[in-house]
Computed example of a mutant assay.
Amino acid sequence: MNYAIIGFGKTGQALARAFARNGIEVSVATTRDPASFASDAAAIGPTITPTTLTEAVKADVIFLVVRFESHPAVAKALPDWTGKTIIDVMNTQAPPEELDGLPSSAFVANAFTGAKLVKGFNHLVAAVLGQDPAVQGGRRVVFLASDDNGAAAQVGELAEKLGFAPIQLGGLSEGGLLVHARGKRWGELIFKDLITFD
């Protein structure tokens, strides 16, 4: 299983730090030349590899951390995303009518033909997401939602490897609405920083 993060702003770098802390290799890409952010990747750790978008989309599991309006351009990088798991880490305040009345992740899923899509890691601000999730004897929670139970379980296992405590919310149009943006209203779990104790 190999991983990529597409988008290397504050949130993309926060995710990269989670991989680096656990010695897990991950490719990072933007639409820019990898040389332009190679020093930022190197500063995070040796398991973080800057690459091109063309190379990044070859990964099995891809964190999508671009601006919401940029996701259609990323989707065009492959004609068919079958066999890939996309983790939608984006947030948007686009009004529901611009999303065909769908939850934002269901709208995104339509752009990535054939992919299994999981909404996750989006409810924590970058400054918190980038911290060690081991907190006061507990683990920081990440919420996951997907219409594919197998993909949700797979991403849950990855979240645990990264040190987080995953909580499954169900499908995108059910529990997933709790972490979706809907116009100018945020889902009820957005920006909640919760800890679970085993």
Rank of each mutant, 00 (worst) to 15 (best):
A35P: 09
A35Q: 08
A35F: 12
A35H: 07
A38R: 13
T47R: 10
I48H: 07
I48F: 05
P50Q: 03
T51V: 06
T51S: 09
L53R: 11
T54D: 15
T54F: 13
E55A: 13
V57E: 09
V57G: 13
K58R: 15
A59R: 11
V61F: 06
I62Y: 01
I62T: 00
I62D: 02
F63E: 01
F63I: 00
L64T: 00
V66C: 13
R67V: 03
R67P: 14
F68P: 04
F68V: 00
E69H: 14
H71Q: 12
H71R: 14
H71M: 13
P72N: 03
A73E: 12
A75S: 03
K76D: 14
K76W: 11
A77S: 13
D80L: 07
K84N: 05
T85A: 06
T85D: 09
I86D: 00
I87K: 01
V89D: 00
V89P: 01
V89L: 00
M90G: 03
M90R: 02
M90Y: 06
M90T: 05
N91H: 12
N91W: 08
N91A: 03
A94T: 06
P95D: 10
E97I: 10
E98N: 07
G101A: 09
L102E: 05
P103W: 03
P103F: 01
S104N: 05
F107Q: 06
A109W: 07
A111M: 06
A111G: 05
T113W: 01
G114K: 02
L117T: 00
L117P: 02
V118I: 10
K119D: 00
F121N: 01
F121I: 02
L124C: 03
L124H: 02
L124A: 02
A126T: 10
A127D: 06
A127E: 13
Q131L: 13
D132W: 12
P133N: 12
P133A: 05
A134P: 00
V135Q: 07
V135P: 08
G137H: 15
R139V: 08
R140K: 11
V141Y: 15
F143N: 09
F143Y: 13
L144N: 10
L144Q: 14
A151E: 15
A151G: 14
A152W: 12
Q154H: 12
Q154Y: 08
V155T: 09
G156D: 09
E157K: 15
L158R: 14
A159P: 02
E160H: 04
E160A: 11
L162D: 06
G163E: 11
F164N: 01
A165H: 13
I167L: 12
I167E: 15
Q168D: 10
L169K: 02
G170P: 12
L172F: 08
L172E: 01
S173Q: 09
G175S: 04
L177K: 11
H180I: 07
